[in-house]
Write a protein that binds this DNA or RNA. Structure first.
Lengths: 225, 225
DNA sequence: CACCGTCTTTGCCTTAACGCAAATTTATTG
DNA sequence: CAATAAATTTGCGTTAAGGCAAAGACGGTG
């Protein structure tokens, strides 16, 4: 089974004995979802922890009036959970939706809890993982509270282009998706993209974009006005 | 020692054997701080976990231009930590400051980690605690992203007055402090307080306030425009 | 190729939020 | 009680952000 290998590569499970790993692996359910499907809706009680085998899952908050905010994208090899996995009967504060067709390996609370209680290291690693997510949330808060839209967008563009300095990159997010990630609207994103373009910071076409002045973009992202 | 009892009352430690508890308790340092002092500044690497014995500690994010956002208030009996307790060399994403003279019982990473690794239950409880904090952060995000200032302020007022329906309550937060909790400014808070008052939702004097129309206030807090 | 649905772009207008400065009130301390 | 500091309140002007609507642009698909 290649899955064995797959699990062992994960930060959380990597320190377990082979035997324990096998037991845990055997107790997992495999589930498949298609892009656009909801795995869980906001408010549901969902006591599962999962690792993404293939594809991508995103956690999304939604306001009554359709606006939404993407909190995190969980990619292949990464772990995520329903709140009720930890806190019984706690409803999801955000929904989970599938951004790319995916395969999940998931455990219910009852299934995994015994292993967690027996293995201090396993629980510890889980704590560390959660801390990383706390950190991530903390950044979102900071940006929402202090950075104006321009700064948040600049940040997003930097993430997207990572280090690929000045290459042409496909625009694989729609304006609505970008807006959802930075907590704004389609129109705002569009305007700022073109403003950046006018200022010679990025170059943009309908299908591609490239960062021409990475430094200025970083300045914008830093400016914690 | 009454401290023994104190620790045992905590969610995290309550399930430990007396012997383990004693060992953990013995390994803690006691530290005292005065209101206004900083325990750690944003950006510092601080590998400690602590429980508040007396007083209150708050976690605060600050922008370059003096504006600040209070993330959480840690009260007596509650636990908090520096990021580096979990992630080596990770700098604090927020500072910790003392809102009321306090006594902390704290452990360094090296001190407590062995106990965590040995005791699955202890690590697990810690995970659960962190999840509660994640949840809290998630609410902050939601409010910042979707709720206008009025809604966030309404929320704060409801928290402050908890269930004490229509009693007169002391105004123990300054406008600046309120502003810091909802991510806005002194002036905004002042204006909305008086607007609420004009609308007959609250009654307010310089030193006290009371909620006269709890339902309307809840409506405002709900309105996830 | 014509049609449809989705996405992007832009102009125009409204509102929310903020910053500054000044006036006023309250608290504190010698 | 005077003097000073801190906190509150208000007016006024500015900017950021958003909503609506209409006009392109594009990619399919029949």
């Amino acid at each position: 089974m290649e899955t064995n290998n797959f699990l062992a590569q994960n930060q959380i499970f990597s320190h377990l004995d082979k035997s324990v790993l096998k037991k845990i692996e055997a107790s997992a359910q495999k589930r498949y979802f298609q892009a656009g499907e909801w795995i869980v809706h906001h408010g549901d009680v969902w006591p599962y922890l999962f690792i993404v085998g293939k594809g991508e899952v995103t956690a999304v908050k939604e306001s009554a009036e359709g606006r939404s905010l993407t909190l995190v994208a969980v990619k292949a090899g990464e772990i995520f959970w329903g709140l009720a996995f930890f806190l019984e009967n706690a409803p999801m504060p955000a929904g989970l939706t599938v951004s790319q067709d995916c395969e999940l390996l998931l455990w219910s609370r009852e299934t995994l809890l015994p292993s967690l209680l027996e293995n201090g290291r396993l629980s510890w690693e889980l704590s560390c993982l959660m801390i990383q997510r706390v950190l991530f949330a903390s950044e979102i808060v900071e940006k929402l509270a202090f950075q104006p839209v321009a700064g948040r967008l600049a940040h997003l563009l930097l993430d997207q282009s990572s280090d690929n300095s000045s290459e042409q990159l496909p625009r694989d997010l729609t304006l609505d998706e970008m807006a959802a990630r930075i907590g704004s609207t389609r129109e705002m994103v569009c305007r700022f993209l073109h403003r950046f373009s006018d200022d010679g910071i990025i170059h943009i076409t309908r299908t591609e974009f490239s960062v021409t002045d990475r430094k200025k973009l970083q300045d914008l992202a830093q400016k914690v006005k």
